[in-house]
């Protein structure tokens, strides 16, 4: 049982979004730039995408989980650690070592990855709006866990030749955690996380078998 209610959760987002504005726009702009670089198969596309993801996970871990969410959830500091670890893994593997090779292929896997990326950047917000949220209550890529995880899963689905599992573990774990929280609080858009995680999982397994 969660120690807070749905109303409190959205009130938290209202305060948080107002405090960090316009960081949401900056995060989405950087992510769009990274995706364009990946789609145009620029050699440094993987490094830029990894840097954007590392920054997004680091920000979300510290600004959201550690400084904001921890006021209502005693588990939030542990979530913060998890997010910072993910940020460090992306920074080390993708940004510093350049081991995240991203390619868009016109295949089920490629389109699924791109779909998840779009869902993280825009679809998540749209879904929230359709479910009745107004902007201050919405979760945005780069500053909130849900869309950041969906975007990350989409990018990982584009990894070549296979999904780097050490980078995928934490996003998958959070996808399940976020979906459970979303289910408990009746937050429809968060339940979508589970679908995203499962899609990546299935695609990655299929790629390994090939």
């Amino acid at each position: 049982m969660l120690p807070y209610t749905r109303d409190v959760y959205f009130a938290l987002f209202e305060t948080y979004n107002a405090a960090i504005w316009p960081a949401q726009i900056a995060a989405i702009a950087l992510a769009v730039l990274a995706v364009l670089l990946v789609l145009r198969t620029r050699p440094y596309g993987g490094r830029v995408a990894a840097a954007v993801i590392a920054a997004a996970w680091g920000w979300t871990g510290i600004a959201f989980h550690w400084l904001t969410f921890s006021t209502v959830n005693y588990l939030a500091p542990a979530f913060a650690v998890l997010f910072v670890v993910a940020a460090l893994l992306f920074a080390w593997t993708g940004m510093i070592r350049g081991k995240l090779d991203l390619r868009f292929e016109r295949s089920v896997r490629g389109w699924s990855g791109l779909g998840l990326v779009a869902a993280g950047l825009f679809g998540y917000v749209l879904f929230g709006w359709l479910a009745g949220s107004e902007w201050p209550q919405m979760a945005f890529f780069g500053v909130a866990p849900g869309p950041t995880v969906v975007f990350t899963l989409g990018i990982l689905a584009l990894a070549h030749p296979r999904v780097p599992w050490h980078l995928a573990v934490i996003p998958l774990v959070w996808a399940l955690t976020g979906a459970l929280i979303g289910w408990t609080l009746d937050i429809l858009q968060d339940v979508v996380l589970l679908g995203g995680g499962v899609v990546l999982f299935v695609l990655a397994l299929a790629r390994r078998r090939n």
Partner: peptide, 13 residues
């Protein structure tokens, strides 16, 4: 006060 008073900083709540 489990859950019910955990409303964070929101002054309306």
């Amino acid at each position: 006060s489990w859950i019910t008073f955990n409303v964070g900083a929101n002054e309306t709540l």
